[in-house]
Write a protein that binds this DNA or RNA. Structure first.
Lengths: 344, 344
DNA sequence: TTTAGCACTCATGTTGCCAGAGTGCTAACA
DNA sequence: TGTTAGCACTCTGGCAACATGAGTGCTAAA
């Protein structure tokens, strides 16, 4: 079951070649490669063995071989010669963070865009769930007699806002008092806990200052319902169309539908553990991903994982270029975010 | 050059049929239709004339006919029997506005989504340019020693926010004063004019209260640079993939690239005049639009046009269903927005 | 163990053929 | 003069036959 050195070499060359040219690789063309010093017949024998072991497969009886998912898996796990990230690319990535951006979301979004541009695959970044941010400041801006905007600023510079309707008979003075109470009591509280706190602590206080305090409490609670999902950012949504692998319109439709939906893809990304992960084809447990690979890398503030940056491409992905790139970006992002937000 | 009644009838039936089935229409199948009481031979003669006049064309010598762009044009201009909007659809549209939403953007975005769902084409809505909104309130929330978020709330409930960096040595007290000054002086001013006002009126006032007033003024001016473009909202970006007309991957790629870019498509929409407009195929002056039509309808607050709602589909679009729908939605949106924002 | 050689397989492209849909034209008809 | 039936013609699309070329598996010799 263990592969011989020569088999490994052949597998490696097959995968490299197929990644490059997207065409089945035959024994004759292999025998012409520098790395390979034995004849096509020998290669054929070895290929037959490799096929039997499940590392490569044929598209039809007399075709060349293409890597199977297992073949890619072996390649990724054992054969990857990670390229160094090109200095030009390093420059570009560094420049994302060179501007003094504070807003976490912008950093994340920009990273997604650049990653997709550098790879011409589709990048997906799960931003930190807003619910885990902490409240920095709450403001209420009245718009008309019964409508106002609540603005929530978090410690990561994220601004969340939503309109709501006042219960009847509330005075500007009361609103002001309420805002003060809320800011005093809720600063530093994770958004996800706002609701509980409002019922537990704030309601009592409001009672002392506001007429319609019970209705108001309810409105506040409703207003501060924070979506529990991570935000999803995309880069190069339609890059898949450019890949020669996707000539089948139906496949494309399926993929696009999934990307459009956001749910499916973010769920798929989310279930990967910390660090860097490569999921090849059906390893993603999703029929539309049959010819796709997904590489994920988590990023963090300090030691705490806060999001995932992912790359979606054909199984025939340039792993050796892309994996180091993703590692680099996620590490760099983590570093930047950590200096920005660590000691808040 | 004027068409006879019979020619018009035939043209109408051809277009209707082709819109429905996406297959070239032959004389024999035409002759079997109820509406048509004369023989296939007669139809052939008429079709020959119609072709000579440029209203229909063949895909090959012995194929049935399909409408030309000129044919669609005539159909849209003269033959459209606008269907009534289905009551079910009316319900759905009404329900968009039934919830008491105040935020203009949400209304616009929701409209885009629903329009695309009802038509299975791609909808694009140009929201009002943020720069034309008026400032309702400005807030500044410090994030750390030198960074803060400026939050701009407009009269349409839009919240714009951006981070900026304080010049050195500014005290919390000074910031508060500044915010007060800005709110006093700038409330009701269109965002696009903020900059001018800051240099003309605010700078002088800041001078009296703030040490580093010149640097601060510059930072403010920089912060209040408002993007001049309309916001673009999409619905059903990938709906085009579902149309039988788009089997050619290259065409699809071109279209998707344009949609992804946002620039091209919004520019194309923008150059249509007020009211409802139908641009067929090359009338859009854009090679990727060759087999597409674009229908635009403007919406307004009171008498002032503030945005455009558009629908992108194949030239073989269901004009008779879709045009009334678009009319209805744009009118309804205008009505709702007018009651919400007219007297602000 | 390696390799040369050969028979075999299959995808691809070409050709010819046929059926079917559709046209254009002509001649007869109302 | 307008309408229609009929017929010859054209083109697409599907199918089968065939050649080609890339590639394989196997055998036998080195």
């Amino acid at each position: 079951m263990l592969l011989t050195d020569r088999q490994v070499l052949i597998l490696q060359v097959i995968v490299d070649d197929f990644i490059r040219y997207a065409l089945p690789v035959g024994s004759r063309s292999l025998s012409k490669k520098e790395e390979i010093s034995f004849s096509s017949a020998t290669i054929r024998n070895e290929m037959a063995d490799l096929e039997e072991l499940g590392f490569i497969e044929k598209t039809h009886t007399s075709s060349g071989r293409i890597p199977s998912e297992k073949g890619y898996r072996y390649y990724v796990d054992h054969l990857l010669a990670p390229q160094k990230v090109k200095t030009a690319d390093v420059q570009i990535i560094k420049s994302i963070y060179a501007e003094r951006i504070y807003e976490l979301e912008k950093i994340v979004q920009k990273s997604a865009r650049i990653l997709s541009e550098m790879t011409s695959y589709t990048s997906i970044v799960l931003g930190p769930a807003v619910k885990d941010n902490r409240l920095r400041r709450l403001q209420i801006v009245p718009l008309n007699a019964d409508t106002a905007i609540a603005i929530i600023v978090t410690d990561t510079g994220h601004v969340e806002n939503r309109t709501f309707h006042f219960p009847a008979n509330i005075s500007p003075g009361e609103v002001e008092k309420m805002v003060n109470i809320l800011n005093e009591r809720l600063a530093g509280v994770p958004l996800v806990d706002l609701n509980a706190k409002i019922y537990k602590e704030i309601a009592v206080l409001l009672r002392q200052h506001i007429q319609n305090y019970d209705l108001m409490t309810e409105v506040l609670a409703e207003t501060f319902k924070i979506p529990s999902n991570e935000k999803v950012f995309f880069g190069g949504k339609t890059n898949m169309l450019k890949q020669p692998d996707f000539t089948d319109l139906d496949k494309v439709r399926g993929l696009m539908a999934m990307i459009e939906q956001e749910e499916g893809i973010s769920e798929m990304i989310r279930r990967n553990p910390e660090g860097i992960n490569v999921k090849i084809g059906r390893e993603n447990n999703n029929s539309v991903m049959e010819n796709c690979s997904l590489i994920t890398a988590t990023y963090s503030i300090g030691a705490e994982k806060i999001g995932t940056i992912a790359l979606l491409g054909p199984t025939r992905m340039e792993y050796s270029r892309v994996i180091p790139l993703l590692k680099f970006i996620s590490a760099d992002m983590s570093a930047v975010l950590t200096t920005l937000y660590q000691n808040d």
